[in-house]
Amino acid sequence: MLYNRIRTFGALILIGLFSAVSSVHGETGPMDVIKSGTQRVLNILNTCKPGETLTVAEYRAELEKIVDEYFDFDEMSIRVLGRHVRSFTPEQRSEFRDLFRELLFETYIDRYETYTCGGNEEVIYEGEVIREPYALVKTVVRGYKDTDVVVEYRLKKKPEGWKVYDVVVEGVSLIQNYRSQFNDILVRESSEQLLQRLRQKVNKG
């Protein structure tokens, strides 16, 4: 599962999943979104002294606000459901979007308890490919446990600017992973049964 792979990266999920944000003013392209967002999130994570640990849960609300502004959860939820999206009513799609968003936080933030400040990680921006309305930004996180980790961001241009709809870590796509999991469920169960599973998963049911 993607969670098991990304979980081993520790700080990478914090830098990776939440670095694709930016100031609304002054952004000129997808690369700018990733660059400015990386610094914005690192400013939160590095509020403690080098070597000390930061309790990530204390900053959940702040991280959540950033992500809601710049991640396209409508696009993400449609792609995750794939062909099964047609079996969901508009109300069910809306609920799925909200539950999926909460699932990501519960999986990648709430279970990641601490972050060690002052690490040696360095984000290298290797390039961008733009084919509007889509774009791909490739980065490499260097210095994490003496290895380089490739993190790619897939973005779509919306009226309000570029928004991320997928994060790919070492070739593993967040969206493709969840699409496979949800497809396995939806070929056997109804859309309402999947929603019930998610409600229980995120303590909403």
Rank of each mutant, 00 (worst) to 15 (best):
R179A: 11
I44N: 00
S23V: 01
R179H: 15
V168R: 00
R86Q: 14
E106A: 11
S173V: 07
I15V: 09
V21N: 08
D148I: 07
S23D: 15
A61E: 12
N46F: 04
G143R: 01
K204R: 14
N4E: 15
E170S: 06
Y115F: 15
V141I: 15
T28C: 06
Q193V: 11
K49C: 12
K138G: 00
R97V: 11
V149M: 07
S94V: 04
Q200S: 12
N203P: 00
Q181V: 14
G171I: 10
S190E: 08
L99A: 00
E132A: 05
K201Y: 09
W162V: 02
V41P: 00
V141P: 02
R40L: 13
N203C: 06
N43P: 01
R199I: 03
L186Y: 04
L174S: 02
R131S: 14
I6R: 05
V140S: 08
I78D: 12
Q176I: 00
E128R: 05
Y144W: 13
K35V: 14
E62I: 13
N177I: 02
R199G: 03
G205D: 12
P133Q: 04
S94L: 10
V172A: 14
N203H: 13
G29N: 09
P159V: 07
V187R: 13
N46T: 02
K145L: 12
L14Q: 00
D184H: 12
R111C: 02
E75H: 10
Y125H: 05
E69T: 08
V168S: 05
D32I: 01
E91M: 10
D148P: 11
E62Q: 14
N203R: 15
Q181R: 13
S173T: 08
E102W: 00
R101M: 03
Q181M: 15
R101S: 06
